[in-house]
Simulated assay, not measured.
Amino acid sequence: MVVEVDIASLSTGDSPRISGVDPEHVEALAVAQNPLPPITVHRSTGRVIDGLHRLRAAEIRGQRKIAVQYFDGDAADAFVLAVESNVTHGMPLTTADRKHAAARIIASHPQWSDRVIASVSGIAPGTVAEIRRRAPGGRPAGESRIGHDGRARPLNGNEGRRVASQLISENPNLSLRQIARVAAISPETVRDVRNRMRRGEDPLPQRGRQAGHDEPPAAPHGSRGPTVVPDREPAEDRAAIVKRLKADPALRFSETGRTLLRLLAMHTISMAEWDKIIDKVPPHCGEIVACLANDCAQMWADAALRVQRKVAETA
């Protein structure tokens, strides 16, 4: 919701821009005839998260009030949103700004993976990893990280790969998701393990074997090995996946991302719920509802193809 707020009540400290605002950009916004888009403000502190140039332009225009959208969250998440907002639109952050921001996010969100922080700060995951290594304390051994899907995984995935290879050997018909859940690794890592086994290669990459623990630890007496979690209902799987996506800052901190999450959440209901809905469709509306359902299905299918192409192009 957009509200009008007194400019004098807003704070402009703690910006991710090391050198502050760009006077030329402020002047360009001030002389433009178009209304200034709403700025984003941290509700609990009144600090401007996104829109500092617009705020300065409004002051030059002589405005006493400005349109504001509030963000509810802690200060650390507010800074993350400030960084991501200024990476994805408006006047972009400099490389120095992005690296400095990444260092702060590493300190405030150490559980986030390098890829997650990279997606927020607009730099390469390798750069984030290097910044993390140089940070005080370095990289703790045995640390786990939260990835884009919201799941925590250990930095060293060797044990997960070993578990996955054992499951694949015992039951090659298990899905990637089933194995991933048991082994606590990503489905893509499971796919890599499976492909390596099909080629007759070691499931562990060379660097993983060199890191030690070449042999899996002996199982305790009487141990039956990893237990396979049976497949849940597809709706439950979708709901769990959407829940993990909601933890991804690249989605939850942007309006388009939140829209996508809302759309995906609509399709997490079970078949029993669908049956109830379908049973209540009035007969005289049936053809229209069926036509719209087909149109929606086609739009989702088109969206899936476009997303897959985008992934392939950036791989």
Rank of each mutant, 00 (worst) to 15 (best):
176 L>D: 01
220 P>K: 08
207 R>L: 08
275 D>L: 15
179 I>C: 00
53 H>L: 01
307 V>Q: 01
193 V>N: 03
36 L>G: 02
265 A>Y: 04
310 K>G: 10
39 I>K: 03
268 T>P: 00
162 R>W: 15
159 E>D: 14
299 M>H: 15
103 A>E: 14
130 E>N: 13
294 N>G: 14
70 Y>W: 11
185 I>H: 00
99 K>E: 07
306 R>I: 11
120 V>D: 02
2 V>I: 12
248 D>G: 03
25 H>A: 13
254 S>C: 11
246 K>I: 06
229 V>I: 11
175 S>V: 12
88 T>W: 00
41 V>S: 03
284 H>T: 12
104 R>A: 10
144 S>M: 14
28 A>F: 08
302 D>P: 13
296 C>N: 01
128 V>P: 00
241 I>F: 04
304 A>C: 06
178 Q>G: 04
133 R>M: 13
152 A>Q: 13
137 G>D: 07
119 S>I: 09
46 G>N: 08
238 R>G: 05
275 D>T: 03
277 I>G: 14
118 A>E: 01
46 G>R: 01
217 P>Y: 09
288 I>D: 15
187 P>D: 15
217 P>Q: 09
225 G>P: 04
245 L>S: 06
98 R>K: 09
182 V>T: 12
53 H>W: 05
88 T>K: 06
202 D>S: 05
77 D>T: 07
286 G>Y: 11
151 R>L: 15
111 Q>Y: 07
134 R>P: 05
231 D>M: 13
116 V>E: 00
284 H>S: 14
235 A>D: 00
233 E>G: 07
163 V>P: 02
189 T>D: 06
301 A>T: 02
177 R>C: 09
206 Q>F: 09
153 R>L: 12
293 A>W: 08
182 V>I: 07
117 I>V: 10
303 A>D: 08
33 Q>I: 09
190 V>Y: 03
182 V>P: 04
